[in-house]
Amino acid sequence: MLQFAAIILLMLGLYGLLTQRNVIKIIISLNILEIGLNLFIISVGYFEGGLAPIFTSETPANPNFVDPLPQALVLTAIVIGVGTTALGLALARKIYQKYGTLNLDEMGEN
């Protein structure tokens, strides 16, 4: 189920990208899409009844950890998402400076 929720989130992001005309809202849509994606990645590593993949003094002998790889991947994906978002926002500011608006429809022929 979790995966399907993630896909719904992904589609929500796509929907936003399709319909939104505001630069900031487009960036937000992009973020929603990325969150959906990250959720999906995490969900791929989940096993029912799996433990968090950390060795502690209470870890049983043959621990059934969840898959740690997707968690590591998602960390990378999140950071990359942050980088893109920062850049997108900086561009949004540039766009605002240039056109005086954030709405794509009001920018003329560009």
């Binding site: 096993f47 799996g50 002998a61 740690p68 790889l69």
Partner: peptide
């Protein structure tokens, strides 16, 4: 949708140690 455990995945080897 949900696996049983990491068997068969490359990440099998990542947890190959003990506390």
């Amino acid at each position: 949708e949900y696996g049983e455990d990491v068997t068969g995945r490359d990440s099998e080897e990542y947890g190959d140690r003990e506390y």
